[in-house]
Design a protein around this nucleic acid. Structure first.
Lengths: 203, 203
DNA sequence: GTTAGATTCTAATTAGCGTTAGAATTAGTA
DNA sequence: TACTAATTCTAACGCTAATTAGAATCTAAC
């Protein structure tokens, strides 16, 4: 009955193995996809047996939900960090560069979590898809707002569809996780080249 | 012993059901992914039972190999068609627009085959991946050559890495298969906006 | 109408999956 | 040391997958 008093370190240990399992799961989901990854493999990567996972997670689906949640959360947080470095009245150009740097940094520096979001399009259960989509909505709205700003600042020229432009930019960024190798180019180089081209091109 | 004489229509019929099975397989692979699609589902879509597939294909892997081959072949052919419309000494700008139109048309008008190539990154068996990669190489080389032309024509400006530019363009194009809905925008609109931005941006 | 070949189906095999219940183990507390 | 709760393992369950061998059916020529 005195659980509240006796358990301090055990809680930390439990959280630690949970984290470990999530990390391994993210790693394998992002590389092999949801369906191609077995609980046995995930457990083995964490020096455990498949059955033991169920002490920490209710099901494979639940595991995937958490990975996806953390994934989108991580991208969103990284972008927010970049935005906070800007003055309050930042211009569209500054905003776009910050968004791009945040998004790319998240995707390329922590690919295990983030590419899970990107690569598992059709193969995850419906319920998981819906849950992930809701989380993603808020983040996408921030991008939409940025594009509106670009339109009112007249940096995105009149005849150009700013939502198409948004999809274009995000497509570029997301796809780089397919081919990016850390030794080829730095993320900052990428951001600069991408942003220069897009800003030049949309005027 | 006189098979050559007696079988004419039967051969056609066999080819027809093979084609049907390939089409259905491509459809389901592109929507659900390789691992999430069962032979039972593919067979059912062609009004057959799973076991009967083995009269036409040696295995599920073999089926996927053919789908991927046709997929990349189709993109390559569609681009070639667009190029043939150009004069022999076409400029980089004309070439880029033609490449983009061909690639996008293939991807968006026949998504069943083409998005199979795009979406099944990690989840297909190693042997299949290698086979697909070889076919893809030749097509990518054509893009590389185009970029070199852009550099020598000085349309891609000096300080810009033309291979990064290539990946950027292809990323945009490929990613559109993720969000594209036929009623939203026509492919020609897309091509125009994309090409304008990229050509403006790379100068 | 019979026969031979082409095509499909049936039913079984084998293997692996996610999941579960209960036993075994570990580690902290008294 | 003994007790207790937390954590992991074992061994099974039910299910579905890919694959296969042989039976069944269909088709077309003689």
């Amino acid at each position: 009955m005195n659980q509240k008093v006796t358990q301090i370190k055990p809680v930390l240990k439990k959280a630690k193995t949970r984290k470990l399992l999530l990390d391994k799961a993210a790693q394998m989901f992002s590389r092999q996809g949801y369906q191609s990854t077995s609980l046995k493999e995930i457990a083995a990567a964490a020096d455990m047996k498949a059955g033991s996972l169920y002490y920490h997670f209710a099901s494979k689906e639940a595991l995937m939900v958490e990975v996806l949640d953390q994934s989108i959360q991580f991208i969103s947080d990284t972008v927010a960090e970049e935005i906070e470095k800007l003055p309050d009245d930042y211009s569209f150009e500054m905003g776009l560069r910050a968004f791009m740097r945040g998004h790319l940094t998240a995707i390329l520096e922590h690919p295990d979590y983030t590419t899970t979001t990107i690569r598992n399009n059709g193969q995850i259960p419906k319920a998981v898809q819906i849950s992930a989509h809701k989380k993603r909505e808020h983040y996408e709205q921030q991008w939409r707002n940025l594009m509106t700003q670009g339109k009112t600042e007249n940096v995105i020229r009149e005849e150009l569809d700013e939502q198409l432009f948004r999809l274009m930019v995000l497509g570029c960024l997301n796809w780089s996780s397919v081919w990016y190798k850390p030794n080829a180019a730095t993320i900052d180089d990428l951001v600069k080249q991408y942003a220069d081209i897009f800003l030049n091109g949309c005027r």
